[in-house]
Structures are given as C-alpha cells and as structure tokens.
C-alpha cells in the first residue's frame, strides 16, 4: 500500500490539490467582480495558443505549448478588457464573444494543420490526464526524503507548485489594493490606485493558474475550481479573509476526495474500472457548492 500510494496516487493528488488552490485563489476575486466566467474563457482560449505554438515549432513540447497558451490567454484578457471598455458591453458578453471566437479559431486551425501525426486532441485538453502523472521512481514513503528520487517527480508537480506559490504571493502582497479595487472601484481610483491595472493583474493571475492547471489537469478542473470553491465559501462567511480560507479548504477537499473517489469509488461499488479523476474532482466541488447553497450559514436568501 505504501509504495503504490506514494508512486501512483500521491503525485496526482498533490498536483490536483495545487491546481485547485491556484485557481480558487484568484477565483475569489473573480467571483466578487462578477467575472467568474473569465476562468472558463481562459481555459478555452488556450487551445488556439497551443495549436499556434505547435505550428510554429512543429513539435509537441511543454515550453512552447505553455508560451503559446499564455500568449493566447493574454490576448483574450486584453480583448475582453478592450471590448468591455470601448464597446460598453457587459463583461459576460465580452467574455462570451472572445472565448467562443478564439476556441472556434483553435478548432479550425487544428483541422487545417497536419496534427494527425502527433498527440494533440480536444479530449486531452478537456480532461487532462491526472492519473498519468505518476512517480515511478518512488519505492515507498522513504522516497519523500530521498533527493535523487524527488528529482524524478513528474515535472508538472514542480511547475504547478511554482505557479501556486507565485499566485499566493501576489495575492498576499496586493491583498489591500485587490480588495479596494474590487469592492469600490471609484473610491480606489480616488486614492490613486491603478484600478485598470489591478483588474488586469487579477485576470492575468487567473490566466497563469488556468494555463498551468490546464497543462497538468485539463480544463474541466480549471473551470470548476475557479467557481465552485469560492462560491461555496461565500456562503460560509461574511468576511473576505475567511472566505478565501474556506475556498482553499474546499478546493483541497474536492481534489483529495475527488481523486480518491475516482480511483476507489467504482471498486467500492463493485465495478472494476476507475473513472476520470478530473471529472470526479469537478463533481465533488459541485457537490460541495450544492451543500453550501442548501446549508451554508451566510446564504443570501435563507
């Protein structure tokens, strides 16, 4: 059990948890700014970025894909802001326009280019492949203190951890401006805060989290983690600090419980195959949101 768990279950569980936390953190601000769909948008617009990166380099490797995805996400963020500001369209509509247009562009690009020889498909983009992020060099719990074994952990783990730490650090450092600009933009402007830049920074953090998590776990978890844990957390408390803490707890709970239920749930029910971990994590986070909606102490309409 020790070997199997450390090698096969622990790395994907940790990566899933980190991805959930990295998305839930900016998700709290997106929720309060009524921009939750921006996470959804970003996780879709990375597709054309990845295809363009493939067309330019001719290979499927992580760095160009990450750069392409990040570039597409940035283009989308700028386009959404521009349409919202200059077109005076409500944010939801601006996001809808940009993300469908870019996703459609990505599909057309994918069709028109010769990607049949390489593994680049929509399914991988949607579900990721959390279960494949295993640590074959682990021999048991002792491997956690063995530097040579640790260096052979899946690279996604280090990438996801780095992004999670970065997102957390930026949110902690700019907590007050983020809160001020989100709560009362006019007042924040009167203090001289660059509210446009702050909005862009929050969206960029979300984009960063989305791209990193997308690479590791696919876009389903990304969408669910931007929205479900913060929305459930909002119904548990009336203070933003506590809301963020609850959301991180819910994100962790969803990732761990979802992974365990995906791997072992079907066996407990007498079935033989495991189900998609990403799908189960998203399902658990949805169930958490449902419970919070029914039972949370700070629901809007009791």
């Amino acid at each position: 059990m020790g070997f199997e768990f450390v090698a096969l279950s622990l790395p994907p569980m940790v990566i899933g948890t980190l991805a959930a936390i990295a998305c839930a953190l900016p998700g709290n601000f997106l929720l309060l700014r009524r921009q939750s769909l921006i996470g959804d948008a970003i996780s879709h617009v990375v597709l054309p970025g990845i295809v363009v990166a493939f067309l330019l380099t001719g290979v499927i490797s992580t760095l160009p894909m990450m750069l392409g995805a990040a570039g597409a996400a940035l283009v989308a963020v700028l386009a959404i802001e521009a349409i919202r500001r200059f077109g005076r369209v409500e944010p939801g509509a601006a996001m809808g326009v940009v993300f469908t247009a870019m996703f459609a562009g990505g599909v057309l690009l994918l069709e028109q280019s010769d990607t049949s020889s390489v593994h680049l498909d929509v399914e991988h983009a949607l579900y990721g492949n959390l279960e494949s992020l295993i640590w074959l060099d682990a021999v048991g719990w002792a491997s956690l203190v063995d530097p040579s074994a640790l260096s052979l952990l899946p690279p996604e783990l280090f990438r996801m951890a780095g992004v999670t730490v970065l997102v957390a650090a930026v949110v902690a450092l700019f907590w007050r401006p983020f809160v001020l600009a989100t709560f009362d933009e006019g007042f924040a402007r009167s203090l001289g805060l660059p509210t446009g830049l702050i909005g862009l920074a929050i969206a960029t953090l979300a984009a960063l989290a989305a791209v990193a998590a997308f690479d590791a776990v696919g876009s389903i978890i990304v969408i669910a983690m931007f929205i479900c844990p913060p929305a459930a957390a909002r119904m548990m408390t009336d203070r933003l600090g506590a809301q963020v803490a609850w959301s991180l707890g819910f994100a962790t709970l969803s990732a761990v419980l979802g992974y365990v239920m995906a791997g072992y749930g079907p066996l407990w029910l007498g079935r033989t195959d495991a189900v998609s971990a990403a799908g189960m994590i998203a399902t658990v986070s949805g169930a958490v949101l449902l419970l919070a909606t029914l039972l949370g102490p700070h629901r809007k309409h009791p």
């Binding site: 709560f183 203070r239 809301q243």
Partner: peptide, 15 residues
C-alpha cells in the same frame, strides 16, 4: 470621496 451608494455591491463580504 463618498461615491453614490447605489454604485456599490452591498453583498460584498466586508464588515
């Protein structure tokens, strides 16, 4: 500056 009250989201989780 005291903004118009209606410009604020009063559901915001703040005391």
């Amino acid at each position: 500056y005291v903004p118009q009250r209606t410009s604020i989201d009063w559901d915001f989780p703040v005391t």
